[in-house]
Simulated scan of single mutants.
Amino acid sequence: MTDGARKVLVVANHPGIVYAFRRVLRGTSGFTLVGYVAGHSTITAVLADALPDVVIVDDLGAPSDAVKRIAEVHSELPAAKVVLLVPNTGLEWLEDAVCAGAHAVMSKTIDPTSAGTLLREIVRGTVFHCLADPSIRAGRTAPENGSTHQSLGLTQRELELLRLVASGATNSRLARQLFVTEQTVKFHLSNIYRKLGVANRTQASRFAYAHGLVPTALTPEADEAVENVVARAA
C-alpha cells in the first residue's frame, strides 16, 4: 500500500494500454500506477522491486507469453490480484490463464468508468471471472451453431444472453455477469422474445434447447456448479 492506495503494475507491449489504464486509475480512488513493463520476457525482477498489489496483464498478442507472465506473478506474489486484459472474452486459451493464476478477465471494450469500478470489486474479491460463453466457462468447447442463430436474426450478444437465460440466470445475475444494467438486459430479452416468437424466458429457454442453441451438456445445475470455478477471493 502506498498512502492507502493499492499499487498497480501494467504488463503490456503497447503503450496505448498503459495510457488507457493511467487514465482509468486517475479516476478511480484507492489505486496508484507504480509502473509498466513489456511482457515479451520475464518480469520476475520487476515484481520483486515494485511489489504491486494488482497486476494487469495484456494479452500481449501472444497467449503463451501472457500465460507465462501470469504464472510468474502468481509464483512471485501469490497475494497479488491478476487481471488479464483481452480483446474479447470468448478465447479458448483463457482457461489456461485462469489455471496459471488469473483472478479475472477484462475485455478491452469495457467502458473506462466501468473498468475502474470493476477493478475495485476484483480486488475486494466480489467479482467472479466470467467468460462470454457458458460452455467455455465450464471448460468445454461447444460448437457455435452460428448458422442457426443467424437464421433467426439473433446477434452474438443475444445468443450469449439466451444461453445464460437457458442456464437459469436471473436478470440481476445477467446484469452482474455482463456488467450492464438490468434495464439493458430487459431490452435485449424483449428483442430475443420477439425474434423467437415467444412470450417469456421459460418459452425462450425451451426454444433454445429444442433448436440446439444451447449445448446439451449444459444444464442449469452444471452452469451453477461452474459459477465459482474461477472465483479467487484470496
Score class of each variant (00 low, 15 high):
K195F: 01
L118Y: 13
L47F: 03
A38V: 03
R23D: 13
A62M: 10
G116C: 05
R206V: 03
A169T: 08
N145E: 12
Q156M: 14
Q183L: 09
L119D: 03
Y36S: 14
D49P: 02
L189E: 15
G4C: 06
S167I: 14
D59V: 01
E92C: 10
A115C: 12
V37W: 03
T141H: 13
P52W: 08
S107T: 13
A222S: 11
D223R: 01
V180L: 15
R6C: 05
A142M: 10
F179L: 04
T219F: 08
N13C: 11
T109E: 15
Y193L: 12
P63K: 08
A142H: 10
G101P: 00
R69P: 11
V185L: 08
E121M: 15
L33W: 06
Y209H: 12
L94P: 05
K195P: 09
S107G: 12
A48Y: 02
A102Q: 03
R163P: 05
N200M: 05
A62W: 05
H103D: 15
A225P: 01
A20Q: 07
L152C: 02
R194L: 08
D49M: 10
Y36L: 06
H129M: 13
K195Q: 06
V226M: 13
E160T: 15
T181K: 06
A204D: 04
A138M: 11
Q183G: 08
I192E: 09
T202G: 12
T44E: 04
A233M: 14
D133S: 09
A66Q: 08
A50Y: 02
N171A: 13
L154R: 03
E144Y: 12
T44M: 01
F128V: 00
R26Q: 15
R137M: 14
V57N: 03
R26W: 06
W93Q: 04
K68V: 02
T89F: 00
V198N: 10
G125M: 15
N13Y: 05
G27I: 05
E221Y: 05
F179H: 10
N228I: 15
T117G: 09
E92S: 15
G116A: 09
G35F: 04
A208V: 10
R163T: 05
F179W: 07
T117M: 07
H211K: 12
D223N: 05
A5D: 11
E224Q: 12
P112Y: 14
R23M: 13
F179Y: 08
G35Q: 11
F179V: 14
A132Y: 05
A175W: 00
L196W: 02
K186T: 13
T181E: 13
P215R: 01
S64V: 02
A79S: 15
T148M: 15
L164A: 03
L94R: 04
P63W: 02
L118E: 07
A175V: 08
V8P: 01
L152P: 01
L213A: 11
A104S: 07
L33E: 07
A175R: 01
K186P: 00
H149W: 11
L162M: 09
L47V: 00
A48T: 13
I17F: 11
I192P: 00
L154M: 12
A100Y: 00
R173K: 15
V214S: 02
R232D: 06
G139L: 06
V226G: 02
R140D: 09
